Computed example of a mutant assay.
Amino acid sequence: MCRLFVFDLFYIPSDSMEGVLYEKDIILVNKLSYGPKTINANPYTRTLDRRSEQIIKRLSGFSTIQRNDVVVFRFFKKNDFFVKRCVAIAGDSLYIKDGIVYVNGQIIKDSNQIKHKYLLDVKNKKAFQIIVNELGIVKSNESRKDNQYWANLSLEEIMKLSPFLNSFHKVKAKKTVKKKLFPKSISQEWTIDDYGVVFIPKQGYKMELNTENFRIYKGLIAKYEGAKINRIKNGFSVDGVRMTHYTFKQDYYFMMGDNRCNSYDSRFTGFIPKEKIVGKVSCVFFSNKDNQFQWGRIGKGV
């Protein structure tokens, strides 16, 4: 019963939260934080993997979802479990410029663990290779110059590498990824590093129905709100009734991975409704980082 209502264990299958959580980590998730769900499953060890469960009811939690919380949620298309960081909550507006996240017009300061893609110009390749191996950094040599490398790095890692570098700079994402982003119908040239502005829907918010909002929110409303919005002559209809506004039925959130240039998150999936959020990540339960058992990471909070 504790596994169903109080906490649960999840296995991390990817590097999208690398820096805080690593591939093959097992994490402890607190279901009481946002309110546990009663379900028709009786799992022993949960993984961030496909699974069929039917939610019966959600109980009240002792806290609300906050910006910077690391949470586990489910994505409707694959029915998989995901773990990401909540960067914007219901009622916020968000945009990303040059890889920097702005919420309600204010810069969201990255922690030292957030990773971005950098181009590195190396002083001494041999010395550089030694420190890279010590830090467990994966690099690639895609540059025309023999002493230049690409790597996904945190600020903390950049500072450790800086004595071995002539220079480094953050690399912006290419626009070719645009067609894969949410929403696919948007006309602007958005990328993972230049994205938005988007408004994160809030329960009870009355939104004007116009061409831009129709493009962004029509899929979300159909999948999560159980309503159908159509474009009609000189306006829009909701469930067959001509309407000028739509009122959202629940809260939504914008999630991003800490490994910003290698994360399948809300920039691709869209907003995540509260009903899909399982709980808040409390700590690392087991770690096999670099294929070695990590005693120092057991119980490490996020």
Rank of each mutant, 00 (worst) to 15 (best):
I55V: 15
R58E: 14
S60W: 13
F62T: 05
S63V: 08
T64K: 12
T64M: 06
T64G: 07
I65W: 11
N68R: 14
N68S: 11
N68G: 12
D69H: 04
V72L: 02
F73D: 03
F73A: 04
F76L: 10
K77G: 07
K78W: 05
K78Y: 11
N79G: 11
D80F: 13
D80C: 07
F81K: 12
F82L: 08
V83I: 11
K84G: 04
K84R: 04
R85C: 02
R85E: 05
V87K: 04
V87I: 15
A90P: 04
D92G: 01
S93N: 15
S93Y: 10
L94E: 02
L94P: 04
K97R: 14
D98I: 01
D98F: 03
G99V: 11
I100G: 01
I100P: 01
V103L: 02
I107N: 11
I107L: 11
I108T: 11
S111H: 01
N112C: 06
N112L: 11
N112V: 12
N112I: 13
Q113M: 12
Q113E: 15
I114C: 02
Y118L: 14
Y118G: 09
L119T: 09
D121T: 14
D121N: 08
D121C: 04
V122D: 00
V122P: 00
K126P: 00
F128G: 13
F128Y: 12
Q129F: 09
N133I: 07
G136N: 09
G136I: 08
G136A: 06
K139M: 04
N141P: 08
N141E: 15
N141Y: 10
E142V: 09
D146C: 00
Q148I: 03
Q148V: 03
Q148M: 12
W150C: 02
W150H: 07
A151Y: 00
A151M: 02
L153M: 07
S154L: 00
L155Y: 05
E156H: 12
E157Q: 13
M159T: 08
S162N: 14
F164D: 06
N166R: 13
S167V: 02
F168D: 03
F168Y: 12
H169G: 09
V171K: 13
V171C: 05
V171P: 05
A173Q: 13
K178M: 15
K178G: 10
K179V: 09
F182V: 07
P183S: 11
K184D: 03
